[in-house]
Computed example of a mutant assay.
Amino acid sequence: MQIKCYDIKGPVLLTPKMVGDARGYFMEAFKDPWFRENVADVTFVQDNQSLSAKVGTIRGLHFQRAPLVQGKLVRCLRGAIFDVAVDIRPGSATFGQWVGEMLTPENALQLWVPEGFAHGFCTLEPDTVVFYKVTNPYSAAHDAGIAFDDPEIGIEWPIDLASAVLSDKDKAQPKLSSLR
């Protein structure tokens, strides 16, 4: 497995080794001891999967508050997404900065979004399926978010934001400044 680090300390892009032939391919998508040694010493407690029917669906930017903060290991099983992690760690020199990657089944990339980051993605193909492991279970009482289109963050979403498909919850998320 290959690791790509960013200027923002924390998020990591993983590229699994795929071995293929005429039948298809095989890859190790996750190996606990390797992940703990090379990426983060965390325990995953829940696997989540979502289906987004329409192109341009944006989910996020989501996070959970303490004590149930979550780290997420994200991959795309069908379709394509632009996946984003935003630094929301208080006092961080890179607070409000983001990283983004295109994840598809074909490239098999996985984005590690550690605790202290908000996470979101937009779909680039219909019927996109996203799978992610989390380090704490979902808690409605600790669920929080920030606006996906906050100009202070300036995410360069690869879609026309005027036609984005959003939940009512994501339409009403506060700005990044609410976390200061």
Rank of each mutant, 00 (worst) to 15 (best):
M1N: 07
M1Y: 06
D7H: 14
G10R: 05
G10I: 00
P11I: 03
V12H: 00
L13M: 13
L14Q: 00
T15C: 00
V19L: 12
G24H: 07
G24Q: 06
M27A: 10
M27N: 12
E28T: 15
A29T: 15
A29V: 11
F30V: 03
F30P: 02
K31M: 10
P33D: 02
P33M: 04
P33V: 01
W34N: 06
R36I: 02
V39T: 06
V39D: 04
D41Y: 08
V42R: 03
V42I: 15
F44T: 07
V45P: 08
Q46V: 14
Q49E: 14
Q49K: 12
S50D: 09
S52V: 03
A53W: 10
K54R: 15
G56W: 02
G56L: 00
G56M: 01
I58W: 00
G60T: 01
G60V: 03
F63A: 04
Q64K: 14
Q64W: 14
A66Y: 12
P67V: 08
G71T: 12
K72W: 05
L73A: 06
L73M: 09
C76L: 09
C76E: 07
L77Y: 09
G79V: 09
I81S: 04
F82M: 05
F82G: 00
D83T: 04
V86A: 00
R89L: 04
G91F: 10
S92Q: 13
A93K: 15
Q97D: 11
W98F: 14
G100I: 06
E101H: 01
E101T: 03
M102H: 11
T104Y: 07
P105T: 06
E106P: 07
N107M: 05
A108E: 03
L109H: 15
Q110M: 11
W112F: 15
V113R: 03
V113Q: 01
P114C: 07
G116Q: 14
A118V: 03
A118L: 00
G120M: 03
F121R: 06
C122H: 07
C122L: 09
L124D: 02
E125Y: 06
D127R: 05
T128A: 09
V129D: 08
V129S: 11
K133C: 00
V134H: 00
V134R: 01
N136K: 10
A141L: 11
A141P: 06
H142W: 01
H142I: 04
D143N: 14
A144D: 15
G145C: 03
F148S: 12
D150H: 13
D150G: 11
E152W: 10
I153P: 05
G154D: 13
G154F: 10
I155R: 00
I155D: 02
E156C: 12
P158C: 08
I159A: 04
D160T: 15
V165F: 09
L166T: 01
D170N: 04
A172D: 13
K175N: 14
K175P: 04
L176F: 07
S178T: 15
S178R: 14
